[in-house]
Simulated assay, not measured.
Amino acid sequence: MKKINVSIHPVGCSGIVCYVGDSISDETNDLVQVISRHIINKMGHKFTGVVPSYHSVTMFYDSITYSFFELKKEVETQILNLQTINLKQKKTIYEIPVCYGLQYGPDIENVMNHHHISMNEVIQMHQESLYRIYMIGFLPGFPYLGGLNRKLATPRLKKPKLVRQGAVGIAGDQTGIYPFESPGGWNIIGQTPVTIFSNNRDDTVLFQSGSFLRFKSINEIEYAEIEKSIKEGSFSLKKEVLEVDEN
C-alpha cells in the first residue's frame, strides 16, 4: 500500500475529520474506504458514527468521555499501521432495475437535446457504466455515483421540482437515485421500483459508500412485476461480490 498522508482537524466540539485528499478520484476514495473500515474495526466503540465521503472521513464521539487530542493521536497511530498491513476488500456490485423514458423519466429529453442524441443512446450509455458510490447524502440513502459517461453530463434544472421515490437522475457529471419523494433539481431520466431506503428493514439503506452499482433497463411490465414482488416480500436485489487486493 502507498504511504497515506492525511490531515486531521476538529469538527465542532465532538467530531474529527480526516482529510485524505482534496479531489474526487477513485484512488482517493479507495483510501477513504480503507481508513473508514479500519477505524470502525479498531476504534468503532469510541465513535458514535463514522462517515466516509468523497475525500474525507468524519468521526463523531462523546466529548464528555473522550478529548479531540486523545482520539486524534490514536487515529494517527491506526492510519500509520495501515502503511504496513496487507488488506483485502470486497467489491460489491448491485444491479438496479430502471424503467427509462418519458413516463418514468420526464427530463430525459433534456439530456437528449443537450447532447443531440436519441433516447435509446441515453439509455444505452447510462446502463453501460459501472458506478462507484462515493458517498451517501444529501437525503438518507441517496447515493452519489461516479462513473457517468461524459457524453451524458447535463446541467441541473434551473428550477427544482417534486421528484418521485426511486427517481434516477443526472446532474452535471454525476447520477443518483432519490430514496423517497423530495424536491430536486436533477434531470430525471428513469425510475427504479427498488426501495433503497426504509425504516422498516434492518438494512435501512440497501448499499453503502465504497460499493458499486449497475443499472439495468426494464420495461413497464417488468417494473410492475418487481413492484409487486417487493410488496410481497419476495424480491431480492441482484449483487455480485468480488475480492480485490488493495496492494
Rank of each mutant, 00 (worst) to 15 (best):
M119K: 13
P97D: 06
P140C: 03
I8F: 00
Q89L: 12
M119A: 14
G233R: 06
T175G: 11
S36L: 09
K216V: 14
L237F: 01
E76Y: 01
Y19K: 07
F60N: 01
I196V: 04
E227Y: 12
Y94A: 03
I230L: 05
M43W: 07
W186T: 07
I16T: 04
K151N: 10
V50D: 10
S211V: 08
S14K: 13
G15V: 07
N5S: 12
E240R: 08
E70G: 05
S217C: 15
L148K: 01
G147T: 03
S53A: 14
T65F: 12
P179M: 07
D203R: 12
V75P: 01
L71D: 02
V51N: 06
D62Y: 03
G44K: 04
G190N: 02
H114T: 11
K90Q: 11
G147W: 08
K2G: 08
D62P: 01
V111T: 05
D22P: 00
N110L: 11
V6G: 00
I133E: 02
H114I: 08
Q83D: 15
R214L: 12
I230F: 07
G15K: 08
P143Y: 02
C18N: 11
G176M: 04
S36I: 09
P155E: 10
L31Q: 14
K158G: 02
S7A: 08
K3P: 04
S229D: 11
L206Y: 02
F60M: 02
D22K: 08
L152E: 04
S234K: 15
G105C: 05
N199V: 13
M1W: 03
I218G: 00
G185C: 10
P183L: 04
K88P: 04
K91T: 04
N187I: 02
L152C: 05
E76K: 08
V57R: 00
Q103K: 13
I226P: 00
P143K: 02
K228T: 15
E240T: 11
W186R: 07
I136T: 04
D173T: 06
N113Q: 15
S129H: 14
I24F: 04
D202L: 12
D30G: 12
P140W: 10
N113E: 10
Q127G: 06
I85L: 13
P183R: 03
G185S: 06
L242M: 05
A153L: 07
T65V: 15
E128N: 15
T77P: 07
G190Q: 01
M125Y: 02
E95F: 14
G166P: 00
Q103T: 15
I35L: 13
N149E: 09
K161T: 15
G176H: 10
Q174D: 10
P143D: 04
T84A: 11
P52S: 07
D26P: 08
D26N: 14
G172M: 05
G166E: 00
V75E: 03
D173P: 14
V205S: 09
L71V: 06
W186C: 03
G169H: 07
L213P: 00
S211M: 13
L237K: 09
V75S: 06
E227L: 13
N187H: 02
V241T: 11
Q127S: 15
I4W: 08
I170F: 05
D26L: 13
V20Y: 01
K91I: 08
L242W: 12
F235L: 05
K161N: 14
E76M: 09
